[in-house]
Amino acid sequence: MTAWIDGRAVARDEAVAAAATLLAGARSPVFAGLCAEAASVQAAFDLARAIGASLDPASGPSLYADLGALASGGAMTTTPAETRGRADMVLALGAAPWATDLLGEVTADRPVRGRASGKPRALLALGAPGDGAVQHVAYPAGEAGLAAAIGLLRGLVAGRIAGPHPLADLATRLREALYGVILYDPAEIGALGAEMLNGLVKDLNETTRCFALPLGDPHQGRAVAQIAAWSTGQGPRVGFGRGYPEHDPWRFDAGRQAEAGEADAALWLAALPAPLPSWTRIVPTVALLGAPKGDEAQVVIGVGVPGEAFGAALWHPRRAAIAWHEAGAPQPEPVAAAAILADLQARLSSTTTNSERSASC
């Protein structure tokens, strides 16, 4: 079985009908998670628009640490491919970059394009000891934390802080780099750190070339941000309660809505792995899951895992873009979350039409 209602295994069609009933009776539904392929995320936006729901991706905290800084002052960013091809200096902020393969890749060879072509590549670390197997120079962040260290570094680079300082050597290295790249995880450095980092990069570009490279989160957040942009012209935390998209990162935070009693139904979309938040236990929830157990929510519907059961458009970290992923373990007739969402939209549209006809009679 691939569908459950209150932990009881049922046919998928029965579960979809129960999900449609739950959502149809809601005054303020919220769609969350959004950890799926592009087609299913787009289908979630379409369904939310149709029934007046709000949306909040699982990657919201990470995305909005970056989006807030981007909205206030812009950003100068690059891609992993450009980093490997051009950077003569890479600075890793915090611990998160060391959990990726990128740092090992950039230290394996030298830049091959641009002014730094053929020159040695320096790998630096701020706020984490790094990996002893990869040669690098580490600098401490200090007791104030990583965001404060980035702010201090910006002051040193711009000459606003004089005298000896533990980060003075790092500031000099940044100024002298021909093509510097600063690798970071928005969730780790936070909104303040992202704001300081974007300012640092802009200051460095007054005299040299330097770019920021944010790490993608594991929940398709970068893809969701793009889909939200082309669907609504805004960020992913939007609500359609008044018939048009309204963007408000605080108001449409799913966890806040649940705790405040504002959300009376939820749809959790996680065709790819994403931890189910605790608030789904207090809000009647429909869960579309790639690897369900059956007891995760009031209504659970199993869906195919994109990039495994079927080919799909997913975020590609190396390309820093949405790209096609072939099926790793194709299934004969996988049911994509997009198909379930389209079915829900058809059922809910039919319910609305019938209600309107009854009212007119």
Score class of each variant (00 low, 15 high):
Val134Lys: 12
Ala147Val: 08
Tyr244Thr: 04
Val112Ser: 11
Lys293Leu: 13
Asp203Ser: 11
Leu267Pro: 01
Pro245Lys: 01
Tyr139Phe: 14
Ala339Ile: 09
Met76Arg: 13
Glu259Tyr: 08
Leu91Ile: 05
Met76Tyr: 09
Pro292Asp: 08
Val224Pro: 02
Asn205Ala: 14
Ala158Asn: 06
Ala309Tyr: 01
Lys293Ala: 13
Gly199Asn: 13
Ala321Arg: 12
Leu67Ser: 04
Arg209Ile: 06
Leu167Met: 09
Glu356Arg: 08
Glu14Ala: 12
Ala274Gly: 06
Ser278Gly: 10
Val16Gly: 00
Glu333Met: 10
Asn198Asp: 06
His165Gln: 11
Val299Asn: 02
Trp250Glu: 01
Arg222Gly: 12
Leu146Glu: 02
Pro97Thr: 07
Gly163Gln: 04
Ala116Ser: 12
Asp295Phe: 14
Lys293Thr: 15
Asp248Val: 04
His136Glu: 12
Ala71Phe: 15
Arg27His: 10
Gly33Ile: 07
Trp98Asp: 10
Val300Phe: 03
Val181Trp: 00
Ala58Pro: 06
Asp88Asn: 09
Arg121Pro: 08
Leu152Glu: 09
Ile282Glu: 09
Trp324Ile: 11
Val112His: 13
Ile322Arg: 06
Arg173Thr: 05
Ala191Asp: 07
His219Arg: 10
Ala81Thr: 09
Arg209His: 11
Gln135Cys: 10
Val112Lys: 13
Gly328Ser: 13
Val303Phe: 07
Ala320Glu: 14
Ala11Ile: 15
Arg251Trp: 02
Asp66Pro: 05
Thr172Met: 14
Ser278Met: 12
Val305Pro: 00
Asp46Pro: 05
Gly328Leu: 10
Glu296Ala: 15
Phe252Asn: 00
Gly74Cys: 10
Ala229Arg: 07
Ile150Cys: 05
His247Asn: 09
Cys210Asp: 03
Ser231Tyr: 03
Val224Phe: 00
Val112Tyr: 15
Ala133Val: 04
Glu195Trp: 13
Ala18Asn: 07
Ser278Asn: 14
Leu23Val: 09
Val181Tyr: 00
Gly243Met: 04
Ala271Pro: 09
Ala144Pro: 11
Ser54Cys: 03
Ala287Gln: 04
Ile340Asp: 02
Phe240Tyr: 05
Pro120Trp: 09
Arg222Tyr: 12
Glu188Ile: 13
Leu269Gln: 08
